[in-house]
Amino acid sequence: MSETIPRRLVTPTPAETSGALKGSLYRLSRRRSTTAFLFALPLLSVVGGLIVYPALYAIYLSLLNRTQTKFIGFGNYAFLFTRDTFWAVVEQSCIFALTAVILKALVGIVTAHLVNNLPAKGQRKWRGMLLIPWVIPLSLSTLGWFWLLDPTYSAFNWLFAQIAGPRIPWLSEPNWARFCTILVNVWYGAPFFLIMYLAALKSVPEQLYEAAAIDGASAWQKFLHITLPMMRNVIAITVLFSLIVTFANYDIVRVLTSGGPRNTTHIFATWAFQLGIASGDIPLGASVSLFMFPILGVSAIFILRGVRRRGREV
């Protein structure tokens, strides 16, 4: 490659012109790929230091015993498979991530349509307001939700009491607690879908809808046959992205329920923290956290393959 690229890309430095440094190092420094590599180096070192190294270190840790004194192979994994709590966490993680992502996508697509149909004047205001949940630091807003749902002081229960409604054990009954973690996640994550879908909606050419109107399509048929197919890639990518983020969520469960009641709301990240940091079995915590990797990896492969295929089609 570098042979075909014009050799003179930068003005010669004094060192070059003086001919002081004519070795292979000098030639290397003049190659375009070398320059590109140097520019990418800061990012590469961040990725290496904060992602690759911890990941490899986690794999290493997961192969040790509790006191990190002995190599026990896959012992930690074998142990996890025998624990009911582990399977409960797997189940809860999947339920949490799938339900939350599907609901976020639905809420996002509906609100995106509503906002898109608002008159252009007020649209920016609404868009800004609807983005608020997404820009507040998650642990702080979850704390707010915690107070709304608090067993003793719950604002919702107070409201229900006004209309003689029931008292709901928001965070102390397993299913309600699961519902609440998903609710807060949807509240927090839907604006991301909203903004992505709104952008995608605006990029669908108006004439396609006009052509469809003339072809006899109703509003629903336009959505089904024009909007959805035109947005397939955006939907696939946002769902994948959100699936990763939601699967790896920590803040909401940690602040809202700490995994309780009786570990029923634990997901991978919070349970890994519980085992590794709170209970002091770092190798076991590392093994739990590593389970997220294959699950997300497989779904990423499937979704991105679909995106690539459609990318060729359209």
């Binding site: 004439q207 006009e210 052509a211 003339i214 035109m230 459609r310 089609e313």
Partner: peptide, 13 residues
């Protein structure tokens, strides 16, 4: 009626 648009407006998918 049927209409032919300037930029064709074919459904790309």
């Amino acid at each position: 009626i049927a209409m032919v648009f300037q930029n064709y407006a074919l459904y790309p998918h």
